[in-house]
Structure formats: C-alpha cells, structure tokens
C-alpha cells in the first residue's frame, strides 16, 4: 500500500445549497392585527397594568411583565423618530435603492414601528417629520403587512425633538 498520500492539490470547497421550508404560526393577536389592516385599522395591545400600547400587538408588556389583554386601534399616522437611508442591497429584497427605513411612533402607540417612507426625496426626510400610511385601495387589501404600501409626509409641522426623543 502506498503511503505517499492523496493528491497534494486539495479540493477547496464543498458547496451546499440549503432548502429549508418553514411555516410560521402568526398567533391570535397577530391574526387579528393583520385582519384589521384589511379595514385600514392598525391595532395595538394595551398593558393591563400601565395602559401603554404596543404595535403590533404583543401578549405581555416586556416592561411591566403584565398581560396586554385589550386590543385597541391606534392612528395610521405619526412621527418619524429616527431613520436611515439604505443604499445597499440585500439578497431577495426588491425595494428600489435608496430607500428610507424609519422608526415611526404612531399616534396613540408607546413603541415605534419600522416603516418605509416614500413620496419624498430621502434627503428631505427629517427626525420629527409627520407621516401617514398609504393604504392599498379597497378590495386589494389582503390582511397582510403589505396592505400599507408605505408612509408619506403629511405636510403637518414637524414634532419638536424633545417630544419623541424618549421613544425612538
């Protein structure tokens, strides 16, 4: 038997493409939240101890550790608390670059959501800018996060920094 060993020039890589299907449960709160989007309503959940409102709704407040047992509507408009302008692509994403990903504190909610800001130049987006949801037309809403196409400026005066700096 030879003891010289296998070829000196090694195989450099073993390739593998992973295909892993998943099927996610939304959970009852999220089901109701998504269904309400069909009616142009954004639901939040209210903490049974502090009264603070979470959007999208969650079953318990991470702050108070108490259940959030009531679902209530919040406004489909609010304030951009902070944002970034994305200039680089991610595999599998179709949003045209550049785009603005913003934290938006909806009126009536105590935490911010992530939202896409359109209908203005990215350079014109400001912390404090008032924005509103742009909904898909009636009949086209499916009860999914895509029912809100994006947010756009309302033209209202900006909110002062101090009014939202504590809830980025």
């Amino acid at each position: 038997m030879s003891t010289s060993g296998p070829p000196k020039e090694p195989v450099k890589y073993v390739e593998k493409q992973l295909h892993l299907p998943y099927c996610y449960v939304a959970g009852d709160y999220k089901v109701r939240y998504l269904a309400a989007l069909k009616d142009k309503t954004i639901l939040g959940s209210k903490c049974s101890r502090t009264g603070k409102v979470f959007v999208p709704p969650i079953v318990a407040s991470p702050e108070s550790f108490a259940p959030c047992d009531e679902l209530i509507p919040v406004a489909d408009r609010g304030v951009v608390t902070t944002f970034c302008i994305v200039n680089i692509p991610v595999i599998g994403r179709s949003i045209e670059l550049p785009y603005v990903a913003a934290s938006v504190a909806l009126d009536g909610a105590d935490i911010s959501i992530y939202a896409l800001i359109q209908e203005c130049a990215p350079a014109d987006v400001r912390m404090g800018m008032r924005v509103e949801a742009v909904w898909k037309p009636d009949g086209e809403r499916q009860g999914s996060h895509e029912d809100i196409i994006h947010f756009r400026p309302t033209g209202e005066p900006d909110a002062p920094l101090a009014s939202f700096m504590h809830r980025l």
Binding site: A26, P56, T82, I88, A102, Y114, L168
Partner: peptide, 17 residues
C-alpha cells in the same frame, strides 16, 4: 414572518440610533 423586511444588515439596524 408577518413583518415588512426593511432592516438591511446590522448597519441598517444601528444607523438610526
């Protein structure tokens, strides 16, 4: 799932802060 995919890598997450 059930969320609009907007965050682009760690940079996209941290840039607003």
């Amino acid at each position: 799932p059930f969320t609009q995919p907007l965050v682009a890598g760690a940079g996209g997450y941290f840039a607003p802060y």
